[in-house]
Amino acid sequence: MALDADRLRVLVEVAHAGSIAAAAARLGFTPSAVSQQLAKLEREVGAPLVERGRAGTRLTGPGRVLLEHGERVLGELRAAEQAVRAAAGAGPQRIAVGAFSTAARTLLPRALAALKRERPGIRISLVDIEPPDGYGLVAARELDLLLTHRYPGVSLPPARGLRRRLLLRDPLRLVLPRDHRLASAPEIALADLADEDWVSGAPGMPNRICLESLGPLHVAYETRDYEVTLALVAAGLGVSFVPASLVVGHPGVVLRDLRGRSPVREVHVVHPPRPSAPAVELLERLRPEEVR
């Protein structure tokens, strides 16, 4: 029996939304209708696909396998629809981009503004997506491009048929208060900061994994926001590693290099094998020189 594409879409939406209620809102269905479609799909494949709980839904092993295929199937259908509409000259052009917060602030605004000038009628959408999420949205063509990152000590997810290219190497610089005892040192050994309070993300976050891979350092302040990190350092409450692209010209801190090889954050762009014409143009504009 051939699988029903509409039911595959329901499974994909439930997986992406995280709950039946949220998926129903996105699809314009009732939660009961979504549950019925899932039940029919489970009967078709002969296996449970979704586990329901108070915190939402979680895919089973067979559900995760079918999700990967379903995302690709929906992606191909959406690509076909977009190609036909473009050939017929129907409807406005669109581009949907996902990006982590610092990339959305530093890399995308000028590139998107330039694309808007070149294509005045284009409709642009941008959503915040923190790594490693977003790959499934690209496979399903809900996103045309995804900006993601990799910190030292963190593995990239499998691309599964998508295209992923390195966009930027962004060194992580030591950030110290201006009156720090080592503020005038050109290079600093990590051992010289062993007794310092550090500012970093919570356990499991990429920048925290990177920091912990360097040695046993004391994290006193946890935040995922680099603006908060810089404010805490400027106030003299600790030290941190921050991507170089985010701290150029900050008045309250000094930047120093780690003796030896400084860690580097990689920024990657992910897109389908055959990106849309607007996505290709945006890719051409997202080619910054390496931050030093």
Rank of each mutant, 00 (worst) to 15 (best):
Gly201Asp: 08
Ser155Trp: 03
Leu108Phe: 13
Glu51Asp: 12
Pro131Asp: 02
Gly252His: 06
Ser240Lys: 08
Glu44Phe: 03
Gly89Phe: 08
Arg256Ser: 06
Ser245Ala: 15
Ala80Arg: 15
Leu232Pro: 03
Ala24Gln: 01
Val219His: 04
Arg52Cys: 05
Pro275Arg: 02
Gly204Pro: 08
Glu118Ala: 14
Ala104Arg: 15
Arg105Gly: 08
Thr106His: 14
His250Met: 04
Glu44Ala: 15
Ala103Lys: 06
Val228Asn: 03
Val14Glu: 10
Ala220Ser: 11
Glu290Gly: 13
Pro158Ala: 08
Arg265Gly: 01
Leu174Lys: 09
Leu176Ile: 11
Ala17Ser: 13
Trp198Phe: 13
Gly136Asn: 12
Gly53His: 12
Arg181Leu: 09
Ala183Thr: 11
Gly249Ile: 07
Tyr151Leu: 06
Tyr151Asn: 01
His16Gly: 12
Arg163Asn: 09
Val34Leu: 04
Gly28Trp: 10
Leu286Phe: 10
Leu255Ser: 07
Ala22Pro: 11
Gly63Met: 13
Pro275Thr: 01
Phe241Trp: 05
Leu49Thr: 10
Phe241Asp: 00
Glu212Ile: 04
Arg256Thr: 12
Cys210Lys: 02
Leu27Asp: 01
Glu187Trp: 14
Ala39Gly: 03
Ala183Trp: 09
Ile95Ser: 09
Leu217Arg: 09
Leu174Cys: 08
Leu282Lys: 05
Glu118Asn: 05
Lys116Met: 03
Ile20His: 01
Glu51Pro: 04
Val233Pro: 14
Arg160Ser: 03
Pro272Arg: 04
Glu281Arg: 15
Pro152Val: 05
Thr57Gly: 02
Val12Gly: 04
Arg94Val: 10
His218Gly: 00
Arg150His: 02
Phe100Val: 07
Asp170Lys: 06
Ala55Trp: 10
Leu168Thr: 05
Gly63Ile: 13
Leu145His: 07
Thr223Lys: 01
Arg150Ala: 11
Leu172Glu: 13
Val228Ala: 13
Ala140Ile: 00
Val248Arg: 13
His250Ser: 06
Val138Ala: 04
Ser240Trp: 14
Pro109Arg: 10
Thr30Arg: 07
Pro157Thr: 04
Leu258Gly: 00
Ser240Thr: 15
Thr30Ser: 15
Ser19Ile: 12
Ile122His: 01
Pro203Cys: 07
Ala47Gly: 05
Leu8Val: 09
Gly238Lys: 09
Leu143Ala: 06
Pro263Leu: 05
Val267Ile: 15
Ala33Asp: 01
Gly134Thr: 05
Asp195Phe: 07
Leu3Lys: 04
Pro120Glu: 05
Val233Asp: 09
Arg287Ser: 11
Ser101Asn: 05
Gly18Pro: 12
Val267Leu: 08
Gly236His: 14
Asp144Asn: 12
Pro120Lys: 04
Leu176Phe: 07
Ala159His: 12
Arg150Asn: 02
Pro48Ile: 08
